[in-house]
């Protein structure tokens, strides 16, 4: 016991450096964090720095193969059917992709989680209504819903985010509700009620922190799903429109050249995979780091590594 105390002691160093240290211990998570940092930087500054390069056509470089530096460094990953450098396009597409995916995942997670907390915690009729609403969304083919909505509305980034968010709500709604139903019967919730804690306090202070790690894990997995869903909408022509690009759209555009120029779909596909994988690794790390009973794994490793 005295051993565990010395581990939790070095608090004076500041919270930020403690977290960084815990991240450094988990090497895969550290790499994942670096990669995500690059993706976020691309999303922020990509269109500004490489916007021109990504849209300029170069008919001599049509379907230029990768690893050929003859046309300049931008062509290291090859070029697409119109001779535009893939590296630049991926960097520029990061913005739309991340915006759509993050927006949709965040939106659906927040709404789904909030509704799930209500549905799980209150025993009123509203809880039933919320669940039936979730069933309705679930039983309606999500792609059909997207097609109808985007056909009627303008196919813009905001609308795509909206549609994708709505179709993913039931996932969070049901998970949250199931967990809340279990946690609300736990003894520490009863203990809080005996103390006179308000419902709001019980939900946000006692129940939500226990549900959150599960939701974060689902959200990271959902990230990939949303990216691909967006690409299928783009493929149908009701998603992101032509001059704008996303990774999903690049995958589907490259599909017809798959036998002759695999790199058109491969690189954006790889970007999707790596992003999801990184998010997953990072969420796994976060789950351990946020759990006081598990945190020692990271803190102890940190000491061993110096």
């Amino acid at each position: 016991m005295s051993d565990t105390r010395t581990l939790t002691e070095p608090k004076e160093r500041g919270a930020a450096s403690r977290w960084l240290k815990m991240l450094w211990v988990d090497k895969p998570a550290f790499c994942a964090a670096l990669f995500l940092l690059i993706v976020v930087l691309c999303a922020l500054f990509g269109p500004m720095l490489m916007g021109d390069m990504a849209t300029r056509q170069n008919l001599r470089g049509r379907n230029a193969p990768p690893f050929d530096l003859a046309q300049g460094w931008a062509y290291v990953l090859g070029a697409d059917a119109l001779g535009r450098p893939l590296l630049a396009r991926i960097a520029v597409a990061a913005q739309n992709t991340i915006m759509v995916a993050a927006g949709a995942v965040l939106g659906s997670a927040v709404i789904g989680c909030a509704l799930g907390l209500v549905a799980g915690y209150s025993r009123k009729r509203a809880a039933q209504w919320i669940m039936r609403l979730g069933d309705v969304i679930m039983s309606f083919p999500s792609l059909l819903l997207a097609v109808i909505v985007l056909y009627m509305l303008e196919p813009s980034v905001a609308n795509i985010v909206l549609v994708l968010a709505i179709t993913r709500i039931p996932v969070y709604l049901r998970t949250t509700r199931a967990e809340v139903l279990e946690i609300r019967e736990r003894m520490f919730v009863s203990a809080a009620r005996v103390m006179g804690a308000s419902d709001r306090r019980i939900v946000f202070r006692h129940i939500l922190p226990v549900v959150l790690p599960t939701l974060v894990t689902i959200a990271t997995l959902d990230f990939a799903f949303v990216m691909l869903a967006e690409s299928s909408l783009s493929f149908l022509g009701i998603g992101i429109q032509a001059p704008e690009i996303t990774w999903g759209l690049m995958v589907s555009q490259g599909r017809q050249y798959l036998t002759t120029a695999w790199w058109l779909s491969f690189w954006p596909g790889l970007a999707i995979i790596l992003t999801t994988l990184s998010l997953n690794l990072l969420s796994n790390w976060l789950r351990i780091a946020l759990d006081p009973a598990q945190r020692w794994r990271l803190e102890m490793g940190g000491r061993r590594n110096g």
Binding site: M187, F188, S190, A191, A192, V194, D291, P292, A293
Partner: peptide
Amino acid sequence: LQMVFQDPTQSLNPR
């Protein structure tokens, strides 16, 4: 009116 529960492992919020 306060209460002390059977299993302190469960009655104390682990987080």
